[in-house]
């Protein structure tokens, strides 16, 4: 098995600093977060520019080129509801360190993003949901199947799809947690790669508890076969869990200094 892949989540327009930097085309705040996440162990960086209805294409091209040129062509996940912005981003994307990831398609209105990925030889996050939260795993797996078929018809390699079971908040949806883990297990047993917005699980919990909830969730999810997560690599507790699980699962060879890598 390959090492668990962290897609760094911290370049997100929900952060006021990043939103301002994107608006004003100010490189420094964005590069700072990019470098911090790479240094902490992110293999990919998610770049969320929001809906970006007005000047999405221009923003995406600017930010893709900025991060890649300054950070040794780190591979990126392009995250926006604006399809044209994703296409524009891919046009200027450097593939030397990995394909772009489109974040994301779902089984509803955004299923065409799978075709967009296929047409551009990109990877795609496939969110197993249609409208709102799937009611059970039958529904989840039906969406998973629908998106897998759509991708195969478009000529995509299933390896290029990252299925997202949709992690749910623990505080409020505690009874759904095991179901999500079981969904990951089913997808893994089908040989599929998986990912998800891990920090969803700790939403609304006190700040000091969030790393704990995230770390234990990732450990249990990795046991079920989770292969990557969109998460905060600058959280030491989370990274400790990921690195240790990689050792226990044999994804990487043990050495006394493994946490320092």
């Amino acid at each position: 098995m390959q090492k668990f892949m962290i897609i760094g989540e911290r370049i997100h327009c929900i952060s006021p600093v990043i939103r301002k930097a994107l608006e004003e085309r100010d490189p420094e705040p964005i590069l700072k977060r990019a470098r911090e996440q790479i240094e902490a162990g992110a293999a990919y960086l998610d770049v969320n520019i929001g809906p970006a209805e007005k000047d999405g294409e221009e923003i995406m091209q600017w930010v893709v080129q900025l991060i890649q040129s300054e950070c040794d062509n780190i591979p990126l996940a392009l995250d926006t509801a604006n399809k044209k912005a994703i296409e524009a981003g891919i046009k200027v994307y450097n593939r030397s360190k990995g394909k772009p990831i489109i974040n994301s398609a779902d089984a509803g209105d955004r299923i065409d993003n799978i075709n967009l990925a296929a047409a551009n030889d990109a990877m795609c996050i496939a969110l197993c949901a249609k409208e709102g939260i799937p009611s059970d795993n039958d529904e989840r797996m039906m969406y998973c199947q629908q998106m897998l078929e759509r991708a195969m018809e478009a000529g995509m390699d299933p390896e290029d799809l990252l299925f997202d079971p949709l992690f749910l908040v623990i505080k409020g949806m505690q009874e759904k947690q095991v179901e999500v883990l079981e969904a990951i297990k089913m997808m893994s047993e089908m040989g599929l790669k998986t990912t998800g917005g891990l920090s969803n699980v700790s939403n609304g919990a006190p700040k000091e508890l969030r790393p704990v909830l995230d770390a234990y969730t990732v450990a249990m999810a990795m046991m079920c076969g989770l292969t990557s997560a969109i998460a905060n690599p600058c959280d030491p507790k989370l990274m400790e869990a990921v690195k240790t699980c990689d050792i226990i699962l044999g994804n990487t060879l043990y050495a006394d200094s493994y946490l320092e890598l």
Partner: peptide, 14 residues
């Protein structure tokens, strides 16, 4: 000692 092999390389690079 496979784990020491990796560890020594890490220590030397550090």
């Amino acid at each position: 000692d496979i784990n020491l092999a990796k560890q020594l390389n890490i220590l030397m690079t550090q």
